[in-house]
Design a protein around this nucleic acid. Structure first.
Lengths: 159, 159
DNA sequence: TCCAATTCTTTCAAATTCGAACGATCAGTG
DNA sequence: CACTGATCGTTCGAATTTGAAAGAATTGGA
């Protein structure tokens, strides 16, 4: 018998859905005007910077960013033209390509990261108490893991 | 001195950011295959259905959906071709256009809504307890309101 | 070893989205 | 009333994203 959920769930969902979209738009806008980087490209650099040797297989990168494969190819192409990322043939698997963060990429990221952190703090984290942070961590962490796993296991949906 | 926040905040943010993006992708994918509607178009219909007289000014609709104006024009054009939405000149302001939900639009929404609700339940709400729902509501509701207000007041960002 | 199925990335065309500019209308002021 | 600046929605070209297909390489089993 979960009485409060029934009333709360729809409202919580709508608030979350619309709020998170507005938040992402605003972060995108600020990132672009403040650093000249797309939020998407920033995340490419960020995820790469955290990988072993600042390099990652295209496929893994695409999955973690929730990018369609063609999109990542296109985006890495742009970052490569700007010198922020390089492509290298994958050592183990000749089909594969690694995206590698360049020195310029690291520098660019070093500049952009604190700016983005400030935006996130101002728009979102700054208003949260410890309970909220704990809930977010406990809710979205597992959600993220689960959805990541799903798209590894299920290239084709069952049935 | 808010000790836990310092450790928790970055992880909570990453989980939230990546998780919410993966979630939206999955909802989009399922909505499209299950009902043939974009998640974006579905939301257009949904928001319209909740408005007075199932009609709304283009601008208000765009703001609530976090759509750029040109995007809404394009999207309403598609929905109009499908007969789900109609355009009518706004009564009070001759510059304005109202988007109006048609009967077919209502019918389509009636079909799609429970499907979407099931997806949301399966992927997200189903895993949440009352505390999580309460926190989401308390965090994202105000965030949404604040960001909506901001884009009304501040066509140009102050400094 | 050879083959078929699978995986990985890219390519390509079509659809979508963005950003700036535009024409039309409105509101406030003189 | 005329004027100025703001607002509204659309349009337009460019950039991006998608989804499907192709090409290259790997894998596992016969």
């Amino acid at each position: 018998m979960s009485a409060p959920s029934e009333r709360l769930a729809p409202r919580a969902w709508r608030g979350y859905f619309e709020g998170s979209r507005l938040l992402e738009n605003e972060l995108e806008r600020r990132m672009k005007t403040a650093t000249g980087l797309d939020l998407g490209d920033f995340n490419v650099l960020l995820v790469l910077s955290e990988a072993e040797g600042c390099r990652m297989r295209m496929g893994d990168l695409a999955r973690q960013l929730a990018f369609a494969p063609g999109r990542l190819t296109y985006r890495i192409g742009a970052l490569e033209r700007d010198g922020l990322v390089a492509r290298e043939a994958s050592a183990a698997d000749r089909r594969g390509t690694d995206a590698v963060l360049t020195g310029a990429g690291r520098t660019r990221l070093r500049t952009a990261r604190p700016v983005h952190a400030r935006h996130v703090e101002e728009l979102f984290l700054g208003g949260l108490d410890d309970e909220a942070l704990a809930v977010l961590d406990r809710v979205f962490g597992p959600l993220r893991s689960r959805l990541l796993d799903d798209c590894r296991d299920a290239p084709e949906p069952p049935r």
